[in-house]
Design a protein around this nucleic acid. Structure first.
Length: 464
RNA sequence: GGCGGCGUAGCCAAGUGGCUAAGGCAGUGGUCUGCAAAACCAUUAUUCAGCGGUUCGAAUCCGCUCGCCGCCUCCA
C-alpha cells in the first residue's frame, strides 16, 4: 500500500494468511496467468522456508460475463463449461510445480455471502439499488484509489467501457449485483433476492471469498499488476466499507508477461497457453524457471528463444547435480563448507529483499562455478556431498528447479553402462558405441567424466 | 489527457551515491576425450537511452528530451 519495500510482519506470529486472485474459468491458462500462479507459489514457498505457516486461498471465477457467454457459445451448461477449465487450471498448476493451496473457493458457491454483503452495504448507505441492480457508491468511500494511485477526478470515463450498458448514478460507481438478463433467467443463472433476480459481479466475488476464508484483514493479497485498478480498489472499497479495517496488510502485484513488448492478451492476438508450450516439447519445469527467473515486479518479455536459453541453463544445473549425486565420493575438500554457507547467506539475503530471484540465482551459479572444478578432480567426500545436497534441497523447496531425486540406476541401464565401460577399457569401440546407441534409444545420455560415466534422461521427467 | 512503470554488453539480467558495473545465455580461446557428446577453465561494458545540473565522487539524486509498456470502472 505504501508502494515501498517494508519489513514483513504478519498479524499472528508465525502464521500468514494469503490470498491470490485466481483465474476466470472460460479459457485455458496463458503464460501471463501462469506467472501469477508461479509468483504466488514462490511467495508461499519462501514464507514457508522462512518458517511461517501459510494459509493460502486462490479463487476460481466461475460466474461472470465471460463464463456465461463462453458457456453460451460452447452450447454447454455453465457448470460443465467452467468445471472443464477449473480442472485444466489445476492440472496446469501442478505442471508448473505450484504447491497446492489450502483451498480453491469457487465464486458460484458463495453467492449467498455476496448477497449478504450487498444487503449490509445498502443498509450502511454505501450501496444503492437501481432498476434491479445494486451499485457501490464510490463517493461514500473517500479512500478510494489509494492502492493504485488513481485520481478519480482525472480519469477518462468510458475509455474502456461502454457506459450505456449501465444505469449507475455516477459512472465511477461499480456493480455489486447485476440484474439477470432474460437469457440468464431462461438458463437458471440467477439468484433470488429482495431486489429481484440477480447475479454477482466479479469484484464482490473476490471480496466475499477473501474475507470469508481468511478474515477481515489478510496478511498478503497478491495478484498481477493489471488487476490493481479497478478490481482491487473495488475489492478494498467493498471490504473496508463493511469492516472498517484494512483488507490486506501487504499487496504484492506481479508485473505482466509481454510478447514482443506487448501485453499477452486476446486483443493483441498473442496469447500463448501453457498447453501450447507443452505441446511444443517444453516442460513445466522449464516454464516455471522462465517465469521465476525475473523478479516479480519486472515485466518478462516472452519468446521461444528465451525458453531455449532457460533449457540450456537448466541443463547446466542438472549436470552439476548429477555429478554431485552420481559420481563416487573422493577426498574431502577443506573449503567447501564455506562455499555452501556463502551461497546460503547470499541466497536468503537476496530473497529477503523482495524476492530478488536474479540475485539469488547468481549465488547458486557462483557456488557451482566454485564447486565444479573440485568435482572435476573428485575432491569431495560423502559427507560433503550429502551436505551440499541437503542445502540445495532447502533452496529447492523455494525454487523447485533442481533435480535432486538421487541417482537411481535401473538394472538394465546400469548393465549397459557397465558393458560400455568394460568395452572401452578393452578398446572395443564398436561394442562401446552400440551400447551408447542403445542407451540413447532408451532416452539415456551418457556423459563421460574423468571419474567415470554419469547418465541422465534426455526427456525431462516431472518428478519432485 | 491523468496515473504508474521501464530503458545497463549481441540477448536476458543484478546493482539505486564511493572498492575492479553481479550472474546467465550466446560468442571466442583453451583443457579433457578412442570417436562423439557433454562438461570444465579463461575471456567478453572506461560505461549504464540522450542532454544538462547537484556532488570531492552519479548507472544510482534532480530537471528536461527521446523511446517503449501498462491502467483509466465488469478483457482478465
Amino acid at each position: 500500500m505504501s508502494k515501498k519495500k517494508e519489513v514483513f510482519l504478519p498479524q499472528r506470529e508465525g502464521e500468514v494468511t494469503f490470498y491470490s486472485c485466481g483465474p476466470t474459468a472460460y479459457a485455458p491458462a496463458n503464460l501471463s496467468l501462469c506467472r501469477r500462479f508461479v509468483v504466488a507459489d514462490l511467495i508461499v514457498r519462501y514464507l514457508e522456508a522462512r518458517g511461517y505457516r501459510v494459509n493460502s486461498y486462490m479463487n476460481f471465477t466461475d460466474l461472470d460475463d465471460n463464463t456465461i457467454n463462453g458457456a453460451e457459445e460452447a452450447g454447454m451448461e455453465l457448470k460443465t463449461f467452467t468445471e472443464r477449465y477449473i480442472d485444466s487450471f489445476l492440472s496446469d498448476i501442478h505442471t508448473l510445480g505450484v504447491r497446492d493451496a489450502t483451498g480453491y473457493p469457487k465464486a458460484s458457491e458463495h453467492v449467498q455471502d455476496m448477497i449478504e454483503i450487498s444487503h449490509q452495504l445498502v443498509h450502511k448507505g454505501y450501496a444503492y439499488e437501481k432498476h434491479g441492480s445494486i451499485y457501490f457508491d464510490i463517493s461514500k468511500f473517500p479512500r478510494y484509489g489509494r492502492l493504485s494511485g488513481v485520481d478519480l477526478s482525472k480519469i477518462q470515463l468510458g475509455k474502456t467501457v461502454d457506459l450505456d450498458d449501465y444505469e449507475k448514478d455516477n459512472p465511477r460507481d461499480f456493480t455489486l449485483l447485476k440484474r439477470s438478463t432474460l437469457a440468464e433467467l431462461k438458463k437458471g443463472i440467477f439468484y433470488e433476492t429482495d431486489w429481484g433476480s440477480v447475479r454477482p459481479s466479479w469484484h464482490i466475488e473476490c471480496s466475499a471469498m477473501s474475507t470469508g476464508y481468511l478474515g477481515e484483514t489478510i496478511d498478503i493479497h497478491t495478484s498481477s499488476r493489471d488487476l490493481m485498478f479497478p478490481h482491487h480498489e473495488n475489492e478494498i472499497a467493498i471490504s473496508e466499507s463493511l469492516t472498517g479495517k484494512p483488507l490486506a496488510r501487504y499487496w504484492l502485484h506481479s508485473e505482466l508477461l509481454l510478447v514482443d513488448g506487448k501485453k499477452m492478451s486476446s486483443e493483441n492476438h498473442n496469447v500463448v497457453t501453457l498447453k501450447d508450450l507443452l505441446a511444443r516439447g517444453f516442460t513445466g519445469r522449464e516454464i516455471r524457471f522462465l517465469l521465476l527467473s525475473v523478479q516479480y515486479r519486472k515485466p518478462i518479455n516472452f519468446s521461444i528463444k528465451r525458453l531455449e536459453n532457460v533449457r540450456t541453463a537448466l541443463r547446466r544445473l542438472d549436470e552439476f547435480t548429477s555429478k554431485l549425486l552420481c559420481l563416487p565420493p573422493g577426498r574431502p575438500h577443506p573449503e567447501v563448507t564455506a562455499y555452501v554457507s556463502a551461497m546460503e547467506d547470499q541466497f536468503f539475503t537476496a530473497m529477503d529483499d523482495d524476492l530478488n530471484v536474479s540475485l539469488a540465482m547468481a549465488a547458486i551459479y557462483t557456488f557451482i562455478k566454485k564447486v565444479n572444478p573440485i568435482l572435476q578432480v573428485n575432491h569431495l567426500d560423502r559427507d560433503q556431498k550429502d551436505y551440499i545436497v541437503e542445502k540445495l534441497n532447502v533452496i529447492n523447496q523455494v525454487l523447485k528447479i533442481f533435480k535432486l531425486q538421487g541417482c537411481p540406476l535401473e538394472p538394465e541401464i546400469d548393465a549397459l553402462i557397465q558393458l560400455r565401460e568394460k568395452a572401452r577399457v578393452e578398446k572395443d569401440w564398436q561394442t562401446a558405441d552400440s551400447a551408447r546407441d542403445e542407451l540413447a534409444e532408451r532416452g539415456i545420455a551418457v556423459i563421460d567424466t574423468a571419474n567415470g560415466p554419469i547418465w541422465k534422461r534426455v526427456a525431462e521427467t516431472e518428478d519432485e
